[in-house]
Computed example of a mutant assay.
Amino acid sequence: MDRHPGLAPDTVTVLWCTTDGDERRKAHALLVRSAAEMLDVPLSEIWLEHEAGGRPFLGGVGKALQVSVTHARGALAVALTSRAPVGVDVEAVRGLRARAMARAWLDPAEAAWVTGLPEGEQSAAFLWLWTQKESVGKALGQGLRQGGMSRQVPLPEQWPPGNGGGRLVLHPLPGVPDLASAAVMVDEGRHIVGVALRGDAGGGSRAGGVRLEVHQVPPAACG
């Protein structure tokens, strides 16, 4: 793991791993341990708390970081940044009724993009957008309420997308400069991780252009 990867104000760091169970506990443990390493403090000085709505945050010295946690069957991810509220979501790539789901739930431009792809790629494309929408909802602290599924997120610059081996950039949501998101395929394309960032709290700062660094954690070190 890189030293202090999440302290730069222009970076969101995501750590992910595959696991054979107990995803929630392992995700929470990874979050606290990673925050302690980034801040270079003893593990005892950081602990996990939850807001009334269930959103996790760090207590103690960990208050210096904005965090988010996600887990799906067989995988988990955590996001950390010193910048602004962040959200993360992970989904296993699987077969879906993607054409029907896209037309029912997505913005028309997004639905047209999904349904315009070869049928075998539509499920992954739908999840590419879904993970970003989930992440935006987490960054806003409201989930997918208030039209979250119809909220447009950036489409990939190319498809199929890269595997996330290099540095990525969060792109502003169409018409919403203080919200930005991105998604990346991991685990050799078996999972997709979506990430979103709000503008700096209270300042209305633009969220786009922030770097996204995605690091895999070995399963043995994940929990």
Rank of each mutant, 00 (worst) to 15 (best):
G116C: 04
G116A: 05
P118N: 02
P118D: 09
E119C: 00
E121H: 11
E121Q: 15
Q122I: 10
Q122L: 06
A124T: 09
A124L: 05
A125E: 02
A125K: 02
L129C: 03
W130R: 12
W130E: 07
W130V: 10
Q132C: 05
Q132D: 10
K133L: 12
E134N: 07
E134R: 06
S135D: 00
G137S: 11
K138F: 03
A139Q: 11
G141E: 06
G141K: 10
G143T: 03
R145D: 11
Q146N: 13
Q146K: 14
G147E: 07
G148S: 12
G148C: 14
S150N: 01
P154H: 06
P154K: 02
P154M: 03
L155M: 13
P156H: 10
P156T: 06
E157V: 10
E157Y: 00
Q158D: 08
Q158S: 15
W159K: 07
P160D: 07
P161V: 13
G162I: 04
N163E: 12
G165C: 00
G166L: 05
R167H: 07
R167L: 15
R167D: 15
L168H: 03
L168W: 05
V169L: 14
H171Q: 13
P174R: 03
V176T: 09
P177E: 07
D178E: 15
L179V: 14
S181D: 03
A182V: 00
A182Y: 01
A183Y: 04
A183D: 01
A183N: 03
V184A: 04
V186H: 08
V186W: 01
E188A: 14
G189Q: 09
I192F: 02
V193I: 15
G194A: 04
G194E: 11
A196F: 09
L197N: 07
G203P: 00
G204K: 13
G208K: 06
G208R: 12
G209I: 02
G209R: 02
V210D: 00
V210P: 02
R211S: 14
L212M: 13
E213W: 02
V214Q: 08
Q216S: 12
P218H: 09
P219M: 03
A220E: 15
C222H: 01
